[in-house]
Amino acid sequence: MKRLLAGIIVATLAYSGWWFYAAHAMRTDAQGWFEDLRAQGWQADFSDLTVRGFPNRTDLTVADPVLMSRDGAVGWQAPFFQILALSYKRDHVIVAWPDAQTLTIEGTETAITSDGLRASVVFDGQDILRSNLEAPVLNLTRPDMSLALADTNIALEKTTDSSYRFALSAGSIATSSPRAASGIGPDSLASARAESLLEFDRPLRLDALTDAPPRLTRIDVQRSEITYGAVTFRITLAATLDAEGVPTGDMSITADNWREGIDAARENGDLPPAVSDGLIDLLTLLSTFNGTRDSLDVTLGINRGTPLLGPLPVGTLPPLRWH
């Protein structure tokens, strides 16, 4: 009995020591991450950093984190941020965001409010193997607009060294644009979903902010659907991207009742008249080549960001890059 008791005590002390070692390593890694950002000219501050969860978990909480790039173009701040993990499974974590946070992109602040915004991340060393983000409620508010999403899910899975399967879905999307008194058209963008394969010049890593982020080199949108009332646009895309993110490849677009959908969006205030008029002119032109007055089924070539209907340019695509 004495030997058994002694064994239990030794095992308990060993496990406790291991937990405190893991907690200390987690805290040190987090502090080092902030220090690396500061060394690169970022503002990277927090008011407190704690690790709790003994004996089975190592849950890191960062209080009042503030990140801001040197030029002020990119930033983020929140009342707290959490990374939750089982103490014996450190390569799989849950990331939890607060109900309110602020994101700055190109100097413009976006207020983010959410309910249950969480992400699961599985990694090997610094390389991300797979991740899944979900939010039953997610609201984005900028000075000029707001966007409300429900049942949002984003999934990422590594398939080869630097290729990833990417999927996105949103059960409903509503904008802040005022609705017309007539009430014509839907109250929201009913749904959106996309499935793609993405290739980068190197693997996605956890330390992306402390290093130059990977560059997207190819995108294959195998399926995407955006539904607005009676109209559903389906788009596929296969393109390579140059160093500036400018695509070259092919794109196909199909839609039924597109004219009714655009009219409803304009009536609801979701599209300014100038935008909707130009969009109607463009889609009318495309439908004359393959489709009817209200249906569309056309394939476009893309030459350095310019969609081509045969030799005819029909607009410009923005660069696909994140830095």
Rank of each mutant, 00 (worst) to 15 (best):
Arg193Thr: 12
Arg304Asp: 15
Gly41Val: 08
Leu4Met: 09
Thr284Asp: 10
Asn153Cys: 09
Glu106Val: 04
Val51Met: 01
Asp59Ser: 12
Leu309Val: 03
Ala25Ile: 04
Asp45Ile: 05
Thr50Pro: 05
Ser176Thr: 04
Pro55Arg: 12
Gln40Ile: 09
Leu308Asn: 03
Thr58Pro: 05
Leu282Glu: 03
Gly310Phe: 10
Thr240Ala: 14
Ala194Gln: 15
Trp322Phe: 12
Glu195Lys: 13
Ala170Ile: 00
Ile302Cys: 00
Leu282His: 05
Ile235Phe: 00
Gly315Phe: 00
Val51Thr: 01
Leu308Ser: 07
Ile302Asp: 01
Ser114Met: 03
Gly249Tyr: 07
Thr292Trp: 12
Leu271Trp: 01
Val137Gln: 11
Ser162Arg: 03
Val74Tyr: 09
Asp242Cys: 05
Asn268Leu: 08
Asp187Pro: 09
Arg118His: 08
Asp256Val: 00
Arg165Tyr: 14
Ser191Glu: 12
Arg193Lys: 15
Asp294Cys: 01
Thr58Asn: 13
Leu204Gly: 03
Ile112Gln: 02
Arg90Asp: 00
Pro178Arg: 12
Thr141Val: 08
Thr284Ser: 07
Gly315Ser: 03
Asp207Gly: 06
Asp99Lys: 14
Glu260Cys: 03
Thr12Gly: 15
Ser176Met: 03
Ala111Gln: 12
Asp91Met: 07
Glu109Gln: 15
Arg179Ala: 14
Lys158Val: 08
Asp220Ile: 13
Thr299Asp: 07
Phe233Gln: 08
Asp127Thr: 15
Met26Glu: 14
Gln101Asp: 09
Glu225Asn: 02
Ala155Gln: 04
Ile235Met: 06
Ile302Trp: 10
Ala119Glu: 09
Leu13Lys: 05
Met1Val: 10
Gly125Thr: 06
Glu195Ala: 11
Asp242Met: 03
Ala264Phe: 06
Asp250Lys: 12
Asp151Glu: 14
Leu271Ile: 02
Arg165Met: 10
Leu13Pro: 02
Ile83Gln: 13
Ala274Phe: 03
Arg52Pro: 00
Arg304Gln: 14
Phe200Cys: 08
Phe20Leu: 09
Leu237Pro: 01
Asp71Gln: 11
Asp91Val: 08
Ala22Asp: 12
Thr113Ile: 07
